[in-house]
Design a protein around this nucleic acid. Sequence first.
DNA 1: GGCCATATACGATACGATCCGTGTTGGATC
DNA 2: GATCCAACACGGATCGTATCGTATATGGCC
Lengths: 247, 247
Amino acid sequence: MTTIPLAAVPDDRSTPSVDRQAGRRPGQVGSPPPRQTGRSPGRPRDERATSAITDAALRQLADVGYAKISMESVATEAGVARATVYRRYRDKADLVTAAIATNSTTHLSTGPSPDPRADLIAYLNEFDGHFAESCLEVVGTLIGAREERSSLDLHRQRVVEPRMGHALDLLAQARQLGQLRPDADIDLALQMLAGSVFARRMAGVASTPGWAERAVDMVWVGLSGTVGGAGGAGQRQTPTGSDATPN
Amino acid sequence: MTTIPLAAVPDDRSTPSVDRQAGRRPGQVGSPPPRQTGRSPGRPRDERATSAITDAALRQLADVGYAKISMESVATEAGVARATVYRRYRDKADLVTAAIATNSTTHLSTGPSPDPRADLIAYLNEFDGHFAESCLEVVGTLIGAREERSSLDLHRQRVVEPRMGHALDLLAQARQLGQLRPDADIDLALQMLAGSVFARRMAGVASTPGWAERAVDMVWVGLSGTVGGAGGAGQRQTPTGSDATPN
DNA sequence: GGCCATATACGATACGATCCGTGTTGGATC
DNA sequence: GATCCAACACGGATCGTATCGTATATGGCC
């Protein structure tokens, strides 16, 4: 006789004194402390708890991988009750996605670059080192989950697009500087550059030093319309090994 | 008070007629019916059950995605007890990995091709349509799981490498035919071609018609060392239009 | 050839464990 | 008074393992 008369609460008049577990503040799942309509009534959320949760999530993502993270383990490491995590994030996908996003909105410089090609190479290297692994984990898992379409979209919007956008911006700058042909398909080039990072992980091959420069070299030829050199800006490429200047 | 005296079975005399659940046939997890040392004693495995299991796994992989597959659901759909699945596959990763592998060892023609470039384009299109999704799901999930290193390696060996190898073979043939420079970095080119498929899925962008040909065009320039045409063999590339008979 | 011991597969069922997402309570904070 | 918080309880799902009774194969012995 352990059945609990759940719906038979004596006062069913909208029961305002409990946490609205499922009915948490609407439209704000994923962005931890909304705080915008002036000031919400009641006790505000503990910012330390919020950051402790995202920090713990990021640590565990790096340590044990997405699959082995549980709300329980994150809550414990953050020194927080499980309900406190659920109050902020709908589920694991929401939590991890938001944690990654909050952690890394930094250092995506947007200003014009004097040498977009060099910046692109540097950015690809950093992308390969710091980011590709978790991105592949999360996207792969979310695609495998179906139905989590919202989390997947959120992750793309929060995480993938800003980075892709930054690299695309560098390519667009190069095109504008005349280093690439005006009709160069920089979207496709970006897919191939970013994709090569993922492809190596799919195949289990380690990135060799200089891969980013060689990769950029490979597409740059097609993008610039000339062999062995950049477009009209006269900026030389130095393709590591074969520097035989073709006519 | 529903506790059942499990260990209090009356006859504990070594019970030789039970399945060695944990001690399944050593070294054969993942490759369903080994059958090599002449003939194993005892009742042989039911081949119909084996194929019913892999079929069900593939169906569910396509229908609901990797994350939503459970050993239970596969066993039920296959009309088989759960233990029968576990007898063949250690866990879900092992099952799905093996199912994909057994399903698709076909049609990887190995003979020399008269037009490697066209074959490569066709192969990339097929890869994009039929395979990339599940591959991304599985690899992403397994990378996220860590420790499942063995399953991940198995999946690479069974599934990823044969496909990558086939595409690489086509590139090598093109190089040998003189369509590419002798020092062309075909490994990198392959990473970029295959990667572009994954990158589109990471970004949630649909593949536009003709992407494969444009992608091959883009790397081909760098690989062949000429602009707007193939290497020394005089084989013209025909962007988008195509089948001009190569002399 | 017929019979039996041995060995394994199979279906059914049960178990403990872990994690999930959802309550509920009682106290703290705005 | 509204909301937060920690703590805990709950039912459910899935996991991987185990045990039972039965079915089906091999090989040795009569």
